[in-house]
Each structure stands twice: as structure tokens, then as C-alpha cells.
Design a protein around this nucleic acid. Structure first.
Lengths: 230, 230
DNA sequence: TTGCAATTCAAACAGTTGTATGAAACTATC
DNA sequence: GATAGTTTCATACAACTGTTTGAATTGCAA
């Protein structure tokens, strides 16, 4: 099968160009030029441009999801079936952040592609992302085991915020660097992961030590949000 | 000037169509059809398609920025020049969340347009967003006054996370509803604002009561997450 | 009314896009 | 080495894009 060479040349070229210049202004003709293959090869091997993009994204995000679930499994086994909340969140945001940030990963085409996919929202990718709900439910389940006394809504908000911080850090990396004039170190990925996890845990526990039971008073808002809302 | 009628018809039609169907598949021909004006009118009044989009976005985000700064000013005056940290964050995320969420705003074209602008990242809008740094610096300054002992980096991270949570809530509103099967109430905007502010304050204070003096250390962990970091 | 500028209009332009076609080149099996 | 199936290729297609043009129309001032 010498056709595999063409197929993967297209995939590699597409990933590189999309990573560099975004989905908006990379055409099939750009891709086949970079890959040194014929224009028709894309439709022959992938069916359409959208299916090419989908294949790129599916491959990368399946890898991330596997990494997440692996890390979660390890943490749960270590805890005898019940992983601590910080380990769960670490498994959730670690792989994504590690994959997209960091100095060594800077040159990684895959990483830059995933950043693009997170910044620009193109139809084939959006369709795939919408099916990610099942994957997230597994983390909600683990969180529920770790914090059985929490309201479900609080767990969802906690997971939502954890993803918010990690994705927004990837999306707005450049702006954060510029805004902070370099004072925020975007190269120390482990520190970023720890920071996101720490804040997420605070969001879930309301500032209490997670082992401890419930409420006290607040670092919390005066308004309508009460202790047990967190 | 009967030309104002054409101009604003274009603006209204464009905002509506972009809000409904996204920037990707709305053409100038769609817009002029909806506005009942001639195709050439867009270039005559705005110069180009991108400038039309830019004008739409600038108008809306200037309004948001004004609201933010107003709220900040009020809070600072009330505090004699130094607003408490939660009030500052409230001023930062409140206007955006209020503008884009909530049941009454559901039908608002402007709100839906701004959500689109936050989901799809189109060049003219990205260019404008990049100039928003100066605006954010005013909030950093206020935060520094409120928490003079904090590391600068921690302030930047805190602001970054606050924006992360509010923007991600707007972007992924539908997914959060679906994931949580309705358990997260996206209609109670005030509660959402309070929740985002509360978590942001926790992120900045590391779980200490904000009134209290100094943050243990850099509030956030360096290495792995340990118990006393919470 | 006349004259001048601002606005509208239909039409065309120039370029690009993803996709389809059918013949040619290749590959492996017998 | 002929055959059947796969893969490549040059080329054409059809549609759509934002923008421009130059003539018509309108509105307003003198």
C-alpha cells in the first residue's frame, strides 16, 4: 500500500498548515502543495475537506481522552476505587495543558493544531466536541464518589470551571503573556496544572479543606450565593 | 440624511444574521437581502465586510467596557478610592455575563451576537480584542490597590481565571446545560456572577478570608498540591 | 428650476473554493 | 506478462465570494 504514504503526507501537511495559519485561510490547494500530492488525492482518501479535518481532530482528542482516563484510573486504583478530588481534576486538565503548553511542546505541530482547534471553531470540529459529553460524565461520576455530600450542580460547576481555566489558558496564552508582561510563566506547565487544580478544588470545597465536612463562613459572596451553593 | 436608514438597516440585519447563523456562513448577499438594500451599499457605507463586522463588535464591546468601568468607579468611590477585591471582580465579569446570559436576554440579538463573537474567532474581531489589554490593566491596577501584598503574577492569574470562567460559561452554556441535565441554572445570572466572583476571590486569596492580611505565600502552589495549600 | 453632491442600483468582475471526471500509471496476483 | 484493482494525475466544473463600476436616482441648496 503505497497509498499510505500519500494519506499521511496529507495529514501531516494539513496539520502543519492549520496549526500555523488557522483553518480560515488554508485551502486544499495549499495542503496538497505542501504534501506534494495531487489535489484530487484529498477527496479520494478522505472524502471531503471536512472529513480530513475531523480525522485530524479525532485522532488528537482521542489520545488526550485516553490519557485522561488512564490518569484517572491510576488515581482511583491508588485510592482503592475512590480518587481524591485533586487527583481527579489533575487527570482532567493535566493532559490537555501538558499537550498544548510548555517550551518543548512549543514546536509540536500537534499541540499547535489543538490550540487552533480550540481558538477557531469550525463545523466539523464542533460536531465532534458535542459528543464529548459522555467522556466528561465519567469525571463527574468520579467526583461524586470523591465528594458524596456535594450537590450535583456544584460538581458540574466545578468541572466546568476547571475546563474553563485550562482551555482559556490555552486560548489566551499570548494575551496573558502580553498583559502580564512576562510575569506569568507559561512555560512551567506543571505549575500551571497545579494552579488550575488548586483553584478548582477551592471552587468545589469553598475554601475548606476537602477532607473536612462543610461550611463555615466566607470568603464568599454577600449576595445570594450561600455557603452550600459551593 | 436618508442614508442613515440604509446604514442601520445593514447593521441590524448583519447583527441578526451573524447572531443566528455565525460568521462562517452569512454572506453579504444574505445581509443585504435581509436589510432590503443593495449589495453595493455595504461597501459604500462601511468600506468592506470586515469593517462592518468590526463596527458591530466595537459598538457592543465599548458598551460593555463602559459598564465595567462605571461599576468599578462606583465601587472605588464607595471604598474611598480602594474597592474590595470582590467588588472589582464583580465589575469585571458582571457586565459581560449579564449581557450574554439570562432569560430576558435570551432573545436579544445583541447578546446572541456577542456570544457568536466569543465562539467563532474571526480576524477583524480578533484584532480588536488584542487591543483590550489596556482596558484590563485598569482592573489589574485596582486589584493591586485592593491586595497590595499580592504578587503581581497572582493578580494576573486571578484576573485571567475570572475571565476564563465567565467567557467559558458564555461559550459553553449549551454544553453545560446538557451535561448537567438542567441541574445548573443558567437563567439566574446574578447567582452565576456571584459564583464566578467567589471562585475568583478564592483563587486570589488562596482560601484565606480576603480581609485578612497576607497571603501565606504566593497563594498558589509551586510543586504538587499539598494539603496546606488548601 | 438648476446644479451639485450624496446615495442607490443592476450588473459585471476577478478570484477562489471544494469537488468531480476520466484517462493514465502503478501494484500485485495469477 | 496479462489482468484486475488501486491509486495518481491534469483538468474542468460549477458555485460562490467580496468588491468595483458607472449610470440612474434622490435630496438639498442656491
Amino acid at each position: 500500500m503505497s497509498s499510505d504514504r500519500t494519506r499521511s503526507a496529507i495529514l501531516a501537511a494539513a496539520e502543519k498548515l492549520y496549526a500555523d495559519r488557522g483553518f480560515g485561510d488554508v485551502t486544499l490547494r495549499d495542503i496538497v502543495a505542501e504534501a506534494n500530492v495531487n489535489l484530487a488525492a484529498v477527496n479520494y482518501h478522505f472524502g471531503s475537506k471536512d472529513e480530513l479535518i475531523a480525522e485530524l481532530f479525532v485522532t488528537r482528542s482521542l489520545a488526550t481522552n485516553r490519557e485522561r482516563l488512564n490518569e484517572l484510573k491510576v488515581a482511583e486504583e491508588k485510592g482503592g476505587g475512590r480518587a481524591p478530588i485533586d487527583a481527579i481534576l489533575h487527570a482532567l486538565v493535566g493532559p490537555t495543558l501538558r499537550g498544548c503548553l510548555g517550551p518543548d511542546r512549543e514546536g509540536s505541530t500537534a499541540a499547535r493544531f489543538m490550540i487552533r482547534a480550540s481558538i477557531e471553531s469550525v463545523p466539523p470540529i464542533r460536531r465532534i466536541k458535542n459528543r464529548e459529553v459522555d467522556h466528561l460524565r465519567k469525571f463527574i461520576a468520579a467526583m461524586r464518589r470523591a465528594m458524596p455530600d456535594s450537590d450535583d450542580a456544584d460538581l458540574y460547576w466545578g468541572l466546568h470551571f476547571a475546563l474553563a481555566m485550562s482551555h482559556h489558558t490555552i486560548r489566551e496564552k499570548e494575551r496573558l503573556i502580553r498583559l502580564s508582561e512576562g510575569k506569568c510563566d507559561l512555560n512551567d506547565v506543571d505549575a500551571i496544572v497545579d494552579r488550575v487544580v488548586a483553584v478548582s478544588v477551592l471552587a468545589l470545597t469553598g475554601g475548606e479543606a476537602p477532607a473536612k465536612k462543610p461550611p463555615v463562613r466566607s470568603a464568599m459572596p454577600q449576595g445570594r450565593l450561600t455557603r452550600q451553593d459551593l
